Amino acid sequence: MNIQKLTENYIKNRPFIQIALGHDLINYSKLARIIGNELDISQFDAILIACRRYKEKLKPKKSLGIIELLKKSNMTINTNISTIIVEKNQCIDYLTELQKQNDTRIIKGESAVTIITNKDKLKEVEKRFKYSILKKTENLVEIIIRSSQKLEKIPGVTGYLYSLFGENDINIIETMSTWTDTIIIIENKDLSKVLEIMDFNT
């Protein structure tokens, strides 16, 4: 694979860099050095040219749309959250009842079910699934990003958020979306970093 393609793939996999390029906020020399170091490529000038060429291909309104959408989105933070992963097909009636409650979320997979709930509900859930709990994680935070209906028409929003979290060493424990709500579960220790990187109005 040539340097142009390697550079393009590097930037494509990091939506936050694309947005910074779209707003002319990138120092091309520094970006080229970072790409060269991470991909072990010594041809600095070739990477620099590839970065500039990629910038020319960007649609200027795409990155602007993501930032503007997130600026107008509302963020809700819920602390004392826990996730419990249980074996599938256990206590089906109880799971159905949990899905109707506002303080609990259910994510069904092929082999297991993840229950996201708060501290007050935790003991009740543990008691019901006493012999089928595969994993339990406590002291988590639920981030709910509620956007406008424009979310459906702007590509790359979720990818941008995941990339932003990853580049800031914030581990996403669980994630789900329901129409205009994007829900992300993180560790409590990362909350301050999330508040900092999600301030799009500064």
Rank of each mutant, 00 (worst) to 15 (best):
I116Y: 00
L70F: 02
E38S: 09
L31C: 06
E124R: 09
E8F: 12
V86T: 07
G36Y: 04
I92K: 14
N171S: 13
E174Q: 08
R14I: 06
I145L: 10
N139Y: 11
I115M: 04
D120A: 15
E138D: 14
D190P: 03
V194N: 00
L191M: 08
I144R: 09
I144C: 11
L39P: 02
N139Q: 13
T202L: 11
N37R: 10
Q4E: 12
L191W: 06
L191A: 08
T117Y: 00
I3L: 01
I173A: 07
V194L: 08
I170D: 01
I3V: 08
D24K: 08
F44N: 01
P60R: 08
I107Y: 00
S82V: 05
E187C: 10
L39R: 05
I26Y: 01
Q90I: 10
D120C: 12
I106E: 01
N118G: 13
L95V: 06
S73N: 01
L25H: 06
K12V: 13
N139L: 09
S147N: 11
G36I: 00
Q99I: 05
V86P: 00
I197S: 03
E187K: 15
Q4F: 07
K55P: 03
T96R: 09
K57Q: 10
N37I: 06
K127N: 15
I66V: 07
G65M: 08
D45A: 15
L58G: 03
Y162S: 11
N168S: 06
W179E: 13
K150A: 14
I81S: 03
L21W: 02
K61D: 12
L98T: 00
I170M: 01
I84G: 07
I11N: 02
L25A: 12
I170F: 03
R146F: 09
V141W: 04
E174N: 08
A112R: 06
K135Q: 14
T104E: 03
L21T: 02
K12M: 11
I35M: 00
I133S: 06
I41L: 09
F129S: 07
F165G: 02
I106V: 10
Y160G: 00
K57L: 12
L151Y: 06
I47V: 05
F165A: 07
I116V: 09
Y94K: 13
I144M: 11
K61I: 10
K5R: 10
I115G: 05
G65A: 15
T158Y: 11
A20R: 03
V194G: 01
K127P: 03
A46W: 00
E87V: 06
E87L: 12
T104L: 05
M198K: 00
P15L: 11
S63I: 02
K123Y: 12
E87C: 10
S192H: 08
R53G: 04
E152R: 14
K189M: 09
I197F: 02
C91A: 15
S148N: 10
I92E: 15
N78I: 13
K5G: 07
D40S: 14
E87I: 03
Q149S: 14
T79Q: 14
K153Y: 15
N78S: 14
M176N: 08
I116S: 04
I107Q: 06
K55Y: 06
T158W: 04
P155V: 01
G166C: 05
